[in-house]
Amino acid sequence: MSLSNLIDDWSRYRKGREEGGFHDYEHMWGMSIDLNKCIGCNACSVACYAENNLAVVGKEKFEKGQGMHWLRVERYWDEPDLGEERTSEFQQHGASFLPMMCQQCNAATCEPVCPVAATYHTPDGLNAQVYNRCIGSRYCSNNCPFRLRYFNFWSYYEDSWPAPLQMQLNPDISVRDMGVMEKCTFCVQRIRTVKDTARMEDRKVRDGEVQTACSQTCPTGAIEFGDMLGMYDPETGVAETRVTKMWRKHQVELGKTKQNKQTPEMRGYRVFEFLNTDPCVMYLDRVREV
């Protein structure tokens, strides 16, 4: 709200124009999820409920489609007759699992449509949702091709945590009330804490220091989380982050709508890449015997 602010913004805009984009990201948090390792145990989802104060809506409302699972493990079934016999009533290979959390798109479709700028892009590369600012027009959810935004259709805080369960709520994050959109934040409260600690200790955030609840909980280690900007630094000798390594190994790059794969080992893909929302979550395809 001041002239200096205006000039700062303008110079940032100019800089962005010259360098071809909005560049001063401090971090770019990203994920790599190996579907080969996913066993569909839903532990990540449970951890997410615990960490992020997600409302437990109950069976009736869940069936109506009013659940609040920020991280959902989707199950996809093959056609029953896909196997050798082609007669079996049952699946040959069981379900395929796809854990879906907010993809933190860099060109997020939810951001431009919010009338009050309640969802915006942080310098951390996160797609943030400001609960206080949200007026509940729900356009963001409508415009999310992944359908990863959840709306507080009811006021849950009284029913979801009957006493003394309210004691287990995470104090680092608010409990959302009715009429507000919410979604996976990549555990922004954990990122915040780690960043603050690092700043106090006057150092950079180390790789693996931030762990989201889901990646921490995953028993098979399918979910990797880290800073995508953490490339190898020849001066300090800091190595690439694990996520960056994964992305490079599987030749998935940000800002591309089609990945050019050279060998079948490169299993990386991003969901709905052709929509050019540029998600920060890479999935590694499941390999099965057919």
């Binding site: 009013q66 259709f153 009429g179």
Partner: peptide, 9 residues
């Protein structure tokens, strides 16, 4: 809340 309208995800 809006759930009354039977809106859902």
């Amino acid at each position: 809340g809006m759930g009354a309208a039977n809106l859902n995800w």
